[in-house]
Design a protein around this nucleic acid. Structure first.
Length: 410
DNA sequence: AGCCTTTGACCAGCG
DNA sequence: TCGCTGGTCAAAGGC
């Protein structure tokens, strides 16, 4: 409340009565680089600048926050990764929800995965005394949002600022508060899955950077195939962070819980194996059109295939590769193909298309296929990624009860 | 139409 | 008992 009122006062303050230069000293102290500009270059902006000290997380390294969790058992593991994490420091944040199990290997993996985004720092902790999971995220100076001309959607969405960090689950915001002692407003989210009581609290700075996320409870359901909204509007930031998250979460869900760390590690490692190069290559330009290999057991099989080794020439004209709409390949929780639709469809089995539909959040129609083999009930649907028509997402339902037909010679 | 966010009000725990 | 605080509710409106 206090903060709110303070903000209100500041914002409402007429330009004519803006503070004298002496009042800005603190800013110049905190942001020495700002002093390069003329002191009168943007006085109005300075006057209404939110109170949030957005650069603070950078200086007070994530490690500080981690260390504040020293009582947590995983802290040790986190520390082991500190060096890795510390090395990357220059780009927007990152988010690793539900990384329940933390080992050195995991930390290494996550750190490696994070390189896609040039850098990210995070600390993961799990409170041993309760079911509460804590994922602290530290944001770094954010990438200035780029406004796209025609997009009517709030810029917030474009940059994933005003929605919960996409972690594969659907969340509904049910409250927001300015919490005392925190410089950021805290948002409260509930999992939208029926009967799922998982909640999370997210603290973001005014420019959308996530300062902290606290999860409460465990999901009692599998991750929805696609988020209901903004399915693929993730930025590189999101994409980068989501893939590992998805893997972590999905793996946890399918394998049980933290006791399956080894399996998780395997998955992660396989991911690293296929994608590290591309990740690294993508760093300078933030082009994260990279895919992933992932296999899950169960009645539904979800596989992701590496897709960004496709020659650039193959990429379609009009494919948005700007920093603003980084391809969500990493975010896609299903099989991802790059290339013509037929490629996505032909996976060795024979399929009969039985439907097509435009689904929410994706301008491209989704095609539905059934396996043509009698008594085989496997189905799949194929769709293009909303923000990258070159990426096909294929979701399988069921298991084939027969061998893969011999491929025709081409 | 359905789902989502926003936001002021309300509630419960605590000192 | 009161005030503070964090968490939740729910109406309104947006997408």
């Amino acid at each position: 409340m206090e903060l709110k009122e303070t903000e209100r006062i500041v914002v409402a303050k007429p330009v004519a009565s803006r503070p004298t230069l002496s009042n800005f000293k603190s800013f110049s102290e905190f942001f020495p680089s700002d002093t390069n500009g003329s002191p009168t270059s943007e006085p109005l902006i300075t006057v209404i600048r939110p109170k949030t000290v957005r650069f603070k997380p950078v200086t007070s390294s994530p490690l500080d926050r981690v260390s504040s969790q020293a009582e947590l058992p995983v802290t040790q593991a986190c520390h082991s990764s500190d060096k890795i994490l510390k090395s990357n420091h220059t780009s927007p944040l990152l988010y690793r929800p539900l990384a329940k199990t933390v080992s050195k290997a995991t930390i290494r993996m996550l750190a490696t995965l994070g390189t896609c985004n040039a850098s990210n720092e995070y600390a993961v902790a799990q409170n041993a005394g309760s079911q509460q999971e804590i994922v602290k995220e530290i944001n770094l100076p954010n990438v200035t949002p780029v406004k796209s001309g025609n997009d009517k959607r709030p810029q917030l969405y474009k940059n994933n600022i005003d929605r919960p960090s996409y972690d594969g689950y659907n969340w509904r915001k049910y409250g927001q508060k300015q919490v005392k002692g925190s410089e950021y407003p805290r948002s409260y989210y509930k999992c939208t899955h029926p009967n799922c009581l998982v909640k999370k609290k997210v603290e973001r700075s005014l420019d959308g950077e996530i300062a902290e996320i606290v999860y409460k409870g465990d999901h009692n359901h599998v991750k929805p195939r696609l988020p209901r909204r903004h399915a693929f509007d993730g930025t590189c930031q999101d994409s980068n962070q989501q893939l590992p998250n998805n893997q972590i979460n999905d793996t946890n869900e399918h394998l049980g819980s933290s006791s399956h760390l080894n399996d998780l590690v395997k998955v992660q490692e396989s991911y690293n194996h296929v994608s590290n190069e591309a990740f690294n290559a993508s760093i300078p330009k933030f082009d994260c059109s990279c895919g992933v290999a992932r296999v899950q057991d169960g009645s539904s099989k979800v596989i992701m295939e590496r897709v960004d080794d496709i020659p650039a020439i193959k990429r379609r004209k009009g494919l948005n590769q700007s920093n603003e709409t980084f391809v969500g390949g990493l975010q896609v929780p299903q099989v991802v193909h790059d290339g013509p639709d037929s490629e996505a469809v032909s996976d060795g089995f024979r399929w009969r298309k039985y439907g097509q539909k435009v689904v929410r959040g994706n301008p491209y129609p989704r095609s539905y296929y059934k396996c043509t083999v009698v008594k085989c009930n496997v189905r799949k649907h194929v769709e293009r990624a909303a923000d990258n028509p070159n990426i096909f997402i294929t979701t399988y339902e069921g298991k084939h009860n027969h061998e893969m037909p011999i491929k025709k010679a081409t």
